[in-house]
Design a protein around this nucleic acid. Structure first.
Lengths: 126, 126
DNA sequence: CGGCATCCGGCGGGATACTG
DNA sequence: CAGTATCCCGCCGGATGCCG
């Protein structure tokens, strides 16, 4: 089965249970890579250009060096971020989104937009 | 500080560290509600209409009743899903996205699209 | 059927200290 | 600076059983 993207928003056809499961696979793949507290925040913070390790850490309150290191490594493995080492004293390390990582911008942007709308909604109740 | 959405994609202005932190808040809010393995899968499975508890469970391989119940409750608290109980024998319970929950469709769609592209990329390597 | 209560084991991830 | 190593606690979440 193949579901065309333009049909996704308002799909009316009847699908079998197995077809539902099939349709979930791309979403699961994305979540396997991106879910968790930190990864999308890191990607967001790298959207605006190359950053040093400590800059990322400062940009994301609450993340420990251990977590940041682990998450960046996973982003590297999935070819979403790239690591650059400079032999200065002390050592300098920078991270940057790969072209492939840039392809996540629409995802992050949608999430950001929804979060912003949600904030307004919540604050509006005060 | 206020960042206009249309500037988000390719922001060039220099931001202070504090401004970066501020910009992350909407994303954090969204992640607080949506992050984790299951929530977006549940929302995805409800995109196509009202479903019974067991239907959702069948649509999402690997989720236990306990998890599903807990996650649905959290979606309810955040007014993203609504619960309908019917006094049949045995009892029937259905879930449906609220109008507010529907506002997540673009998020889920972007994630789905990215996941689909990622699948192709991975499979293409063999 | 759609849950909740209880038990329990594993590991995610914080805190702290250390290194090239 | 950019991490690693170690310790260790908490809670996430699976398995099972029960209930309206």
């Amino acid at each position: 089965m193949e579901v065309k993207e333009q049909d996704l928003e308002n799909l009316q056809v009847q699908l079998s249970p197995e077809e539902y499961v099939q349709m979930l696979l791309p979403l699961k793949d994305a979540l396997d890579i991106l879910s968790g507290k930190w990864k999308l925040q890191i990607i967001f913070s790298l959207k605006f250009g190359r950053k040093r390790f400590k800059e990322i850490q400062r940009a994301i309150p609450g993340i420990s060096p251990k977590m940041l290191s682990k998450e960046l490594k996973e982003l590297e493995i999935n070819e979403l971020a790239q690591r650059f080492v400079y032999d200065t004293k002390p050592i300098t390390v920078e991270y940057e989104l790969t072209d492939y990582g840039q392809s996540l911008k629409p995802v992050v942007t949608e999430l950001y937009k929804w979060g912003a709308a949600h904030r307004k909604r919540i604050i509006g109740r005060g």
